[in-house]
C-alpha cells in the first residue's frame, strides 16, 4: 500500500527533539533562489477522496524496527520529502525530515544512500529529468550541510518515470513530486 506520508510520527518527533539542539547551531543551507510558481489551478472537478490515501493503520507495537535498519529509517525518520510544482526548494515541512535523516545517517556512518529526485507528470520527460536532478541535489546539499559526508551520497533523477501515486490529478501530483532517500548499503539487517 502506498503511503506518501511518514508514519510513526510520535517516534519521529522524539528524534527531532533529540537532535534539535545540535542542529540549531548549524547554519541553514541557503534556499535556492529559483522562483517557485504556485501549482496551476485545477481544471478538473475536485477528485473524490480515494481509498489509498486514508490514514494507514498504526504500526503494531510488536513490529518495532531494529535501530539502524532500513525499516527504522523509513518508518521512524521518513525517507521522502515533497516539493512544490516546478520547484526544488526544500519546503519548511521537509526540513525536520531532512534534519532527522542527517542525524540518523550520522549515527549510522556505514550507511550509503542514493537520493532519487522525482517529478509529477505535469512536465515533459527531459525537462523533468533535469528538475528531478535539481531536487535530488537539493536534498544532497541539505544533508551535506548538516554534516553527512558527501562521499556517502549519490543522486539520480527519475524524472516522472517512478510515480509513487499511480493516480492522476493534483493529489497524485503532490505525492509524485518528491525526493526519496534510498539506502543502498550499510544498514543493519532487520
Amino acid at each position: 500500500m502506498i503511503n506518501p506520508r511518514n508514519t510513526g510520527s510520535a517516534l519521529r518527533l522524539t528524534l527531532i527533539a533529540a537532535t534539535a539542539l545540535s542542529l540549531a547551531a548549524c547554519a541553514h543551507a541557503p534556499k535556492p533562489s529559483y522562483p517557485t510558481a504556485a501549482p496551476p489551478a485545477p481544471e478538473r472537478a475536485p477528485e473524490p477522496p480515494r481509498a489509498p490515501y486514508s490514514p494507514p493503520p498504526p504500526e503494531p507495537v510488536t513490529q518495532n524496527a531494529l535501530p539502524g535498519s532500513e525499516r527504522d529509517f523509513t518508518i521512524n525518520v521518513g525517507d521522502r520529502i515533497y516539493f512544490d510544482f516546478d520547484s526544488y526548494s526544500v519546503r519548511a515541512d521537509a526540513g525536520p525530515i531532512l534534519d532527522a535523516q542527517s542525524a540518523w545517517l550520522k549515527r549510522y556512518p556505514a550507511v550509503q544512500v542514493r537520493i532519487e529526485g522525482n517529478c509529477d507528470e505535469r512536465g515533459t520527460e527531459e525537462y523533468n529529468l533535469a528538475l528531478g536532478a535539481r531536487r535530488a541535489n537539493a536534498v544532497r546539499e541539505y544533508l551535506v550541510a548538516h554534516g553527512v559526508a558527501a562521499t556517502r551520497i549519490t543522486t539520480v533523477s527519475y524524472g516522472k518515470e517512478k510515480p509513487i501515486d499511480p493516480g492522476t490529478g493534483d493529489v497524485a501530483d503532490s505525492h509524485n513530486r518528491n525526493g526519496h532517500t534510498a539506502i543502498v548499503s550499510g544498514a543493519r539487517m532487520q
Partner: peptide, 9 residues
C-alpha cells in the same frame, strides 16, 4: 545531449 552535474543541466 544534456549532462547534469550537481543538479545543474
Amino acid at each position: 545531449f544534456s549532462v547534469e552535474r550537481g543538479g545543474n543541466t
